[in-house]
């Protein structure tokens, strides 16, 4: 059966309409059905269309509103990654987190067009006021006191690999020094701390071989 409206496409939609108490069935193709304003949808579309229009980046970057934007931000560039403002406008991508500071003077305009607002209203960054203690920056040198030879395991694991290696070799040096001055108690503490670090490094690796 062909569509009643265009008489061309196969009818795939059967719409029942009740007008003045009279039932009629329309046979339409989906093209035609989408062009007709079907009663239950009409109200919803109107309600939705009443809200402020928002654009995606692609349509935004080429829009007349944005014509002056490159000129307004001329000369801006990120000191960390070198991204220029013009490049940012072209790609729609920041190069690093410092870009946000570097382009701050233009961001309210940009973000105002593609976002609901220009200020953050989500939850705060975790780990600042929360109970979880953030890891201290990796220690530059090994402390003299024996109590602090161990890093918290979680903090040790959060170090970059070369920082982990540096920490372990600092422990080794301390162990050798302790042996040299016959402080065997401290040497043993160092040895144990090294063992714990090596165990931490080795432990998760066992589970890594499994394929999904």
């Amino acid at each position: 059966m062909n569509c009643e409206r265009c008489q061309r496409n196969e009818a795939s939609v059967f719409i029942t309409q009740i007008e003045n108490g009279k039932r009629s069935v329309m046979h339409l193709c989906s093209d035609c059905a989408s062009k007709l304003t079907i009663s239950p949808f009409k109200a919803l579309w109107q309600q939705l269309a009443a809200n402020a229009p928002l654009g995606l980046w692609k349509s935004l970057a080429t829009s007349p509103q944005m014509q002056g934007e490159a000129a307004a931000g001329a000369g801006l560039a990120c000191p960390d990654c070198g991204l220029s403002y013009a490049e940012f406008l072209r790609s729609g991508k920041f190069g690093c987190s410092t870009c946000y500071k570097a382009f701050e003077s233009r961001l309210d305009t940009i973000l105002g067009r593609i976002q609901r607002g220009t200020r953050y209203v989500g939850r705060p960054l975790a780990g600042r006021q929360s109970t979880a203690t953030p890891c201290p920056p990796p220690p530059a040198a090994l402390p003299d006191t024996s109590e602090t030879l161990d890093l918290e395991p979680a903090c040790f694991l959060s170090l970059a690999p070369e920082q982990q290696t540096a920490w372990i070799s600092a422990l080794r040096d301390a162990q050798n020094e302790a042996v040299a001055i016959e402080d065997y108690e401290r040497a043993a503490r160092c040895r144990d701390a090294i063992r714990r670090c090596l165990a931490l490094q080795a432990e998760p690796a066992a589970g890594e071989e499994v394929s999904p």
Binding site: F94, T133, P134
Partner: peptide, 29 residues
């Protein structure tokens, strides 16, 4: 999961814009 990562690693975040992302369409939450 995000909270654990945030408390362990230095995260790109600002009071003004929240979590900083590569694309301005993801910044904030």
């Amino acid at each position: 999961v995000a909270r654990i990562i945030e408390s362990r690693l230095p995260i790109a975040w600002s009071e003004r814009y929240g979590f900083l992302t590569a694309c301005p369409t993801n910044v904030g939450t």
